[in-house]
C-alpha cells in the first residue's frame, strides 16, 4: 500500500473566464520510506499540490489517500487530527512560534496530538538531541541560526511519528552548505525511521538527497528525461520560447532574465557550466 496516493488531482482557482488551472489531473504515489523531490518553476503548482496532499486545501477534483484513508472525503473538522497525527510539515520560513523555546515548539506539536506532560517533553528532547540540538533546547527562535531553526522544524514534524513529511522549499532561507547539511540530516533521520518525505523545491542542489525527482510544470508532471538544463540557473526545463543560438548551437532558458544574462556573457557562462560538470 502506498503511504500517500494522489489520484487525478485537479485544482482550479476562480470561475469562468478568470479560472486558473493550478493542478491538472496529477497522480502521485509515495512509497513507505521514499523521498520524493518535486521541482518546477514558480507558479507551477508545487505548493498547491503540497497543500492538497497535506489536507490543508481541498482539490477541485480527485482523491487524496493517506495510508488507505481518503482524506478528501473527511469532514473539515476531522482534518486537524489527521494532520497532527499522520503528517509532519516543514515550511520555507521555519514558522516556529516566536515566544516558545526550541523544546517547547516541538513539545507543543506532541501536545496537540494528545501527548501530555513529561512524555511529550521526553519525546521532544530526544528528537532534538538526535538532530544535534541538545545544547539549544531552551533557546528561542530569535537566538537560533537558520539551520538550527529548520532542524527544530524537522523535529516538530517528526515528533508525532507521522506517516509522511511534507516540506515546502525547506532550503530557501538557508545558505548553500547549510541547506545541503540540513537536507542530508532530514534524509538520514527519515530513512532511519522509514518515513516518507515529499519535498517541493526550486533548489537543484538537493536533488541528490531524493530517491525520485519529479518535474511539475503548468500543473502537470513532466518526464525529467526530456528536460534540459538552463545553462544560467541550472533548472531543468523543456525546450521552449526562451532560446538563443550561439556558435551554431541552440540554448534554452527558463525565463527572459536567464536568456538576457546568457546573451551578455555567453562564454563565461558556458565555461562555468563546463567547470561544474567536471
Amino acid at each position: 500500500m502506498f503511504v500517500l496516493n494522489l489520484h487525478k488531482i485537479k485544482k482550479i482557482y476562480g470561475e469562468g473566464e478568470t479560472a486558473v488551472k493550478a493542478i491538472d489531473g496529477v497522480n502521485l504515489h509515495v512509497n513507505q520510506g521514499e523521498i520524493i523531490l518535486i521541482m518546477g518553476p514558480s507558479g507551477s503548482g508545487k505548493t498547491t499540490l503540497l497543500s492538497i496532499a497535506g489536507g490543508i486545501l481541498k482539490p477541485t477534483e480527485g482523491k487524496v489517500s493517506l495510508k488507505g484513508t481518503t482524506i478528501t472525503e473527511l469532514d473539515e473538522r476531522d482534518l486537524p487530527r489527521v494532520r497532527i497525527e499522520n503528517i509532519g510539515f516543514i515550511f520555507q520560513s521555519f514558522n516556529l512560534l516566536a515566544s516558545l523555546t526550541a523544546l517547547e515548539n516541538v513539545e507543543l506539536a506532541a501536545n496537540l496530538a494528545g501527548i501530555k506532560g513529561e512524555e511529550a517533553s521526553k519525546k521532544a528532547k530526544k528528537i532534538l538531541e538526535d538532530l544535534g540540538l541538545g545544547q539549544r533546547l531552551n533557546a528561542v527562535p530569535a537566538n537560533l541560526s537558520g539551520g538550527e531553526k529548520q532542524r527544530v522544524a524537522i523535529a516538530r514534524a517528526l515528533v508525532n511519528n507521522p506517516d509522511i513529511i511534507l516540506a515546502d522549499e525547506p532550503t530557501a532561507n538557508l545558505d548553500s552548505s547549510m541547506g545541503h547539511e540540513v537536507m542530508n540530516q532530514l534524509r538520514s533521520i527519515t530513512k532511519e525511521r522509514t518515513k516518507s518525505v515529499v519535498i517541493v523545491s526550486h533548489d537543484q542542489r538537493i536533488r541528490d538527497i531524493a530517491d525520485r525527482v519529479l518535474w511539475l510544470e503548468d500543473g502537470k508532471f513532466k518526464e525529467l528525461g526530456k528536460m534540459i538544463a538552463d545553462p544560467v540557473c541550472g533548472m531543468s526545463i523543456e525546450k521552449g520560447r526562451y532560446r538563443v543560438r550561439f556558435r551554431d548551437k541552440e540554448y534554452f532558458f527558463c525565463s527572459p532574465g536567464c536568456k538576457k544574462e546568457f546573451e551578455q556573457k555567453p562564454l563565461v557562462i558556458l565555461k562555468n557550466q563546463e567547470k561544474s560538470k567536471a
Binding site: 486537524p80 487530527r81 489527521v82 497532527i84 497525527e85 510539515f89 514558522n95 512560534l97 496537540l112 516538530r156
Partner: peptide
C-alpha cells in the same frame, strides 16, 4: 501555523 500542523 498551529492550524496547519493540526490544531483545531
Amino acid at each position: 501555523v498551529l492550524k496547519a500542523i493540526g490544531a483545531s
